[in-house]
């Protein structure tokens, strides 16, 4: 039993942060998106596009920051497809997301062959963002929390900042109010003269930007190459994190931390050899934890009223 408690240490926290960062980023985007009334299951594909773009631009320019910027922009552009399909064309949100996921996988595979000449993996980028790790002075001296939260890499810091930013955005700004309102009662928004379409476009693009960033984290910060299909279902887990986090930025963050923790803990359990079970049971554990979290925590909160519903304005011809 004593062995069991030694598993909980600073390393576990580090591991949790690393594994949860891409989920956090995508989940925060999902929060904004769903708050505005659009379900976005295309995040898996958006992350993949972001991951590929990041590696491609970091590889040809030699500068990971350009890769990061390109990934964010590419995520935003690809998300426009989802916005156009769901908002303007009134396509079912889930259908559009599923199609975009399939398209993103095919597209990145083909581009990988065109850009690097062979399938599977890309060439490694010359400089990865991991080399820009820095410790915040003073704060990183705090025991336990310091090294975990204040001695990190750029995108991890960005994810912390984005959580604060989007929380303030949702509850303290006028646009944030509009975002929440267009997910709860779009018709009322339209009657006070705010374009629901515009707000929803904005929200989908935000989720594209953060998903692109999450992809960049996977490819040029936590690794240095792109592998075909490297997101491995994280987009869906992010959606789960958003739901179990009760459609709020901070909740999404906490839920993502939980999923990251489940996976980190799984490796620890395997290494510690406390239980003599088939390894697959450990590998399954994060997925089971996700189901339990979604089922157990979702009851306390309520989804935005108009989420996933089509909104159509019958404008009078003038």
């Amino acid at each position: 039993m004593n062995d069991f408690f030694t598993l909980f240490n600073v390393e576990l926290l580090h591991s949790t942060i690393r594994l949860s960062t891409p989920i956090t980023l995508a989940a925060v985007g999902a929060t904004i998106c769903e708050r505005a009334g659009i379900v976005n299951i295309a995040m898996e594909g958006l992350m993949l596009i972001g991951a590929f773009t990041a590696v491609f631009f970091a590889y040809i320019t030699g500068n990971p920051w350009i890769g990061l910027l390109a990934a964010v922009i590419a995520g935003g552009i690809f998300s426009l497809l989802h916005a156009y399909a769901t908002i303007t064309l009134h396509l079912d949100h889930v259908v559009s997301g599923a199609v975009l996921n399939i398209l993103a996988l095919g597209l990145t595979n083909y581009l990988l062959i065109l850009a690097f000449g062979h399938p599977g993996t890309s060439e490694p980028v010359p400089v990865s963002l991991a080399e820009y790790q820095f410790a915040v002075p003073f704060l990183s001296q705090i025991p336990v929390i310091g090294p975990v939260f204040f001695n990190q890499r750029p995108i991890v810091y960005m994810s912390f900042l984005l959580i604060i930013f989007f929380t303030l955005f949702l509850y303290r700004t006028k646009t944030g109010l509009h975002v929440r309102a267009s997910g709860e009662h779009p018709l009322a928004m339209e009657t006070i003269g705010v374009s629901v379409y515009r707000i929803r476009y904005l929200a989908v693009i935000i989720s594209g930007l953060t998903s692109g960033l999450a992809g960049a984290f996977l490819s040029i910060e936590n690794s240095n190459v792109f592998t075909s299909g490297m997101t491995g279902g994280r987009g869906f887990i992010a959606l789960a994190a958003n739901i179990s986090g009760g459609w709020s930025a901070v909740g999404s963050f906490l839920a993502s931390l939980f999923f990251g923790f489940a996976e980190a803990f799984q490796y620890k359990m395997q290494a510690a050899r406390l239980l003599d079970l088939p390894s697959e049971l450990f590998v399954m554990f994060p997925y089971i934890a996700t189901v339990i979290a979604v089922a157990g925590l979702v009851r306390k909160s309520r989804p935005p009223k108009a989420v996933g519903l089509d909104f159509r304005i019958e404008k009078q011809a003038d």
Partner: peptide
């Protein structure tokens, strides 16, 4: 010590296992 990641194409998982 052996750790099984369950996949052949996810570097993030390989890295995490190595850290552990």
């Amino acid at each position: 010590i052996s750790i099984v990641t369950g996949v052949f194409d996810d570097q993030a998982k390989g890295k995490e296992a190595t850290f552990v």
